[in-house]
């Protein structure tokens, strides 16, 4: 069963990260006029590698455990540890806002298309599995 759902698990992780990134870009667009706001974005490739890598090689990773109440939990592949980066301003601005609307809109559309692509991969995976479960007589 693991081989069947492997691809599905991976796509599910990718979809979650795409949703996270979509929300991040929405935050940037919402704050396009806020003085002092610094735009953020995620390095999607490394975030996905981290999210899926820790899951596959869970036994080989040495996870840190909190031994006292005051310890700050170290997330392993959790959504709070996405490695967010700050966007460098492409044009300096008097109110030190670094949201570049052209870039944000482009990222937003790019992310929407890739979100849909991931959804289609999932749908295709599901259909492939359902087809495999059917008996030959069912056509």
């Amino acid at each position: 069963m693991n081989r069947l759902t492997n691809s599905l698990d991976f796509q599910a992780q990718a979809l979650t990260l795409r949703a996270e990134r979509q929300r991040l870009i929405a935050s940037n667009i919402a704050n396009a006029d806020t003085p002092g706001y610094v735009a953020r974005d995620m390095d999607f490739a490394s975030a996905l590698r981290e999210a899926t890598g820790t899951q596959a090689a869970g036994s080989t990773m040495t996870g840190a455990t909190a031994t006292a109440r005051g310890h700050i939990p170290i997330g392993t592949g959790s959504t709070s540890e996405l490695g967010l980066k700050y966007a460098a301003p492409s044009q300096t601005n008097l109110d030190s806002n670094t949201v570049d609307m052209d870039r944000e809109r482009a990222s937003f559309v790019d992310n929407s298309v890739k979100y849909e692509a991931t959804l289609r991969f999932i749908n295709t995976d599901v259909r492939t599995m359902l087809d495999a479960m059917k008996s030959p007589s069912q056509g």
């Binding site: 929300r23 935050s27 919402a30 704050n31 006029d33 806020t34 706001y37 959504t79 709070s80 996405l82």
Partner: peptide
């Protein structure tokens, strides 16, 4: 305008205004 944090329950960041 001012940024207001709208984090998800699991701590992922979000920023409203």
């Amino acid at each position: 305008f001012q940024t207001v944090l709208m984090n998800t329950p699991d701590g992922a960041p979000g920023a409203g205004v």
